[in-house]
Design a protein around this nucleic acid. Structure first.
Length: 462
RNA sequence: GCACCGGUGCCCGAGCGGACCAAGGGAACGGCCUGCAAAGCCGUAAAGCCGCGGGUUCAAAUCCCGCCCGGUGCUCCA
């Protein structure tokens, strides 16, 4: 039985789906006003693994993640570059999807856009107004926090507490009767995209979209709502307020992932293009980032840097070699080792303990290698099957074929290097090791690493 | 300022009151392999006690209190 930490209570709770055998999951996607950063990657990876694992255990999962395609930042961006909001949104949504694809993130079943949900948002806001949970001013419609006893439950703070800190970082809109109240509908401002509403032209507030989408697509009382830690307040607190304010059951469980820290200075020094996810993905195998993310528990703050990425890449290389070795060993068909799978499942069931789950995988890898060394093919096959099944559940494809280097295409330099490698092979065959080593040294100086194997010599850029 | 989360070996990072343990990964070292390497495989050692100081307990890295340091939040940031 899967258990995970519910942000609402802070306790580990058993996951009991609303509908037996199924799971409904919603997590907040990006606001598409710029290229994705490392935080997007971590968060998206966290929920990708959650969804994959739920499916692996046999649940029928419906996964929904939104795209916020209208918001202040998008408007500002469009103004800055002299384009339009839809243009900005479409461009960066495409970039987001493309980069998540590189990370082998499974597409959510549904990826609704805010601009497609304005009508439903208006319905929810109308409901709130009718129930007296919201009020109207010249600048828009606001949720009245005082009307909801439970407000603050998700952050674990009282309304008085919150009120004290309100405005500490951002100026408070003077139209609101309470600094904690938040916008459901923003009245039109000149030059901004607008939609019609019972309160005049304008655009929706931020939180309302997730409520309208999740309740519409997944139904009241859906199972899991997730997002980054930084969204707990105010975003998720306010979403919850909106749904409860309508008298509707909202998410049964809340799951939040921790933040990413980057040693920016060190990073830019070693690799100038590292500040964006794209830069990272160009410099490292995307699977190394996934592995690195999995090696840290999803709730913890984690450090991503060139050192930790290199370390993850080295571990990944070992897993690739393992997968290749087992594939080439011509092992008998074997069912995955149950003991390994049980340990894997136990680790994952305990709040998605991917670090321990990977420890299980690495243990199995070592044991399988040892079994193969001892020519115990049956044991090796069972262990390898379990290890590979587990990594698949985590979204990690293994083996040289899975590496982005596998299809590097034609490289003008490659032909020349191949020629040098051939000459070295000839020299070795003639026992002219001095010449062979000279060629190798020359290639080494150029950053080329040679690997002599039973089936010939391969090279790679080190 | 207030709130929440965290501070574990050379590095990343598990552990959340006890005897299967201070996991696992990277690096290091040794062996096998190799003409020699590289890669790979196997093995070894490494935290004298898990930020600091108190306390609770038969028993604490794990609970409580104080302090120091880092992160996040306090209206639109995953």
């Amino acid at each position: 039985m899967l258990r995970f930490t519910d942000s609402l209570t802070g306790d580990k709770v058993d996951f009991e789906p609303r509908d037996p055998g199924k799971a409904s999951v919603y997590w907040c996607g990006p606001t598409v006003y710029d290229v994705p950063h490392l935080g997007h990657a971590r968060s998206t990876l966290a929920f990708d693994v959650l969804v994959r694992y739920l499916r692996w255990t046999g649940l029928d999962v419906t996964a929904v993640s939104n795209i916020t395609d209208i918001d202040d930042k998008i408007i500002n961006r469009a103004a800055d570059e002299g384009s339009t909001e839809p243009d900005v949104a479409q461009r960066f949504e495409a970039t987001f999807v493309e980069q998540m694809d590189r990370l082998n993130v499974a597409h959510p079943d549904l990826r609704p856009r805010a601009t497609e949900y304005v009508d439903r948002m208006v319905e929810v806001i109308s409901d709130l107004v009718e129930r007296g949970m919201a009020y109207t001013t010249d600048s828009g419609v606001y949720f009245d926090v005082d009307r909801l006893d439970e407000y603050g439950a998700l952050v674990g703070r009282s309304v008085e507490d919150l009120r004290e800190g309100a405005g500490a970082r951002v100026d408070v809109d003077e139209d609101k009767t309470d600094p904690l109240d938040f916008a459901l509908w923003k009245a039109a401002k000149p030059g901004e995209p607008t939609w019609d509403s019972p309160w005049g032209p304008g655009r929706p507030g931020w939180h309302i979209e997730c409520v309208a989408m999740s309740l519409h697509l997944l139904g009241d009382g859906f199972d899991i709502h997730g997002g980054g830690d930084d969204l707990v307040f105010p975003h998720h607190e306010n979403e919850r307020a909106e749904a409860l304010g309508c008298g509707r059951a909202f998410a049964r469980h809340w799951v939040h992932n921790g933040m990413v820290q980057v040693d920016g200075e060190k990073m830019s020094k070693s690799l100038g293009n590292f500040t964006t996810l794209a830069g990272l993905l160009d410099a490292w195998d995307p699977r190394a980032l996934r592995l690195l993310v999995l090696q840290t528990h999803y709730r913890r703050t984690m450090e991503i840097g060139s050192t930790t990425l290199d370390q993850a890449a080295a571990a990944l290389a070992r897993l690739d070699k393992f997968a290749d070795r087992m594939a080439e060993a011509d092992l008998p068909d074997a069912a995955a080792d149950d003991a390994v799978l049980d340990r894997f499942r136990a680790a994952m069931d305990d709040d998605l303990g991917t670090p321990q789950a990977l420890a299980v995988v690495f243990d199995a890898v070592r044991d399988a290698n040892r079994a193969l060394d001892a020519e115990d093919d049956d044991t090796a096959a069972a262990l390898a099957a379990a290890a590979l099944d587990a990594t698949t559940a985590l979204g990690l494809e293994l083996g040289a074929a899975a590496s982005p280097d596998a299809d590097a295409g034609d490289d003008p330099e490659a032909t020349e290097i191949d020629g040098l490698v051939d000459r070295r092979l000839a020299a070795r065959a003639a026992k002219d090791f001095a010449e062979a080593d000279r060629i190798r040294d020359e290639l080494t100086a150029r950053g080329i690493v040679l690997e002599d194997g039973p089936s010939g010599t391969t090279w790679r850029r080190g």
